[in-house]
Amino acid sequence: MPKREIYKKELEKLTKIFQEVEESKKKLVEGLIEDAAFLKAENYVLKQSLAETGMVKIHPSNPEMQKPIETARQYLKNINSYAVVIKALNGVLSKGIIEEDDDLDEFE
């Protein structure tokens, strides 16, 4: 699947998740949603490359000599950034949810 298609699919998914959020919060997280979609698409491409090369280059005659591949480093950075962005987006969603009354409310 092309990177552009991955971006579009993730953007649509996140936009749909946030469609019920109040308009001001939607505007606030618009950039984060785009960043999350971008990181998802970038990691898709990096992951395909890593499937072919692996994350570490091992010297053919001396297996103890190893060198991390730059693609792997970038992939891990992107994963961490993606996780932070998703966590921030989830925080906005969580604050928008009105907790339903439970049985413990009777004891107040």
Score class of each variant (00 low, 15 high):
residue 1 M to I: 15
residue 2 P to H: 06
residue 2 P to D: 08
residue 6 I to D: 05
residue 8 K to Q: 08
residue 9 K to C: 03
residue 10 E to S: 12
residue 11 L to R: 08
residue 12 E to K: 09
residue 14 L to S: 00
residue 14 L to D: 00
residue 14 L to Y: 01
residue 18 F to C: 03
residue 18 F to I: 05
residue 19 Q to K: 09
residue 19 Q to E: 14
residue 20 E to V: 13
residue 21 V to M: 09
residue 23 E to N: 08
residue 24 S to V: 12
residue 26 K to R: 02
residue 27 K to I: 15
residue 29 V to S: 10
residue 32 L to Y: 10
residue 32 L to C: 10
residue 33 I to S: 05
residue 33 I to K: 07
residue 33 I to P: 03
residue 34 E to M: 12
residue 34 E to W: 10
residue 35 D to R: 02
residue 36 A to M: 01
residue 36 A to I: 00
residue 36 A to D: 09
residue 38 F to Y: 12
residue 38 F to Q: 15
residue 38 F to V: 08
residue 38 F to M: 12
residue 38 F to I: 11
residue 40 K to F: 03
residue 40 K to C: 15
residue 42 E to C: 00
residue 42 E to G: 01
residue 43 N to H: 04
residue 43 N to V: 05
residue 44 Y to D: 03
residue 44 Y to Q: 03
residue 45 V to L: 06
residue 47 K to Y: 06
residue 48 Q to N: 14
residue 48 Q to D: 10
residue 49 S to Q: 12
residue 51 A to C: 14
residue 53 T to H: 07
residue 53 T to L: 15
residue 57 K to S: 02
residue 59 H to I: 02
residue 59 H to Y: 00
residue 60 P to M: 09
residue 60 P to S: 13
residue 60 P to I: 08
residue 61 S to I: 13
residue 61 S to A: 11
residue 62 N to R: 09
residue 63 P to Y: 03
residue 64 E to R: 08
residue 65 M to P: 09
residue 66 Q to G: 05
residue 66 Q to T: 07
residue 66 Q to N: 00
residue 67 K to A: 02
residue 67 K to W: 09
residue 67 K to S: 08
residue 69 I to W: 00
residue 69 I to H: 04
residue 70 E to H: 00
residue 71 T to Q: 03
residue 72 A to D: 03
residue 72 A to W: 06
residue 72 A to V: 03
residue 72 A to L: 06
residue 72 A to C: 01
residue 73 R to Y: 04
residue 73 R to Q: 07
residue 73 R to T: 14
residue 75 Y to K: 00
residue 75 Y to P: 01
residue 76 L to C: 15
residue 78 N to E: 00
residue 80 N to E: 15
residue 81 S to I: 00
residue 83 A to C: 12
residue 83 A to L: 11
residue 84 V to R: 15
residue 85 V to T: 11
residue 85 V to C: 10
residue 86 I to L: 15
residue 87 K to V: 14
residue 87 K to S: 14
residue 87 K to P: 11
residue 89 L to H: 11
residue 89 L to C: 13
residue 89 L to V: 02
residue 92 V to N: 06
residue 93 L to I: 09
residue 94 S to V: 05
residue 95 K to D: 11
residue 98 I to E: 12
residue 98 I to Q: 14
residue 98 I to L: 13
residue 99 E to N: 05
residue 100 E to H: 00
residue 101 D to E: 15
residue 101 D to N: 13
residue 102 D to K: 14
residue 102 D to H: 06
residue 102 D to C: 06
residue 102 D to F: 03
residue 103 D to W: 09
residue 103 D to L: 06
residue 104 L to E: 08
residue 106 E to R: 15
residue 107 F to A: 04
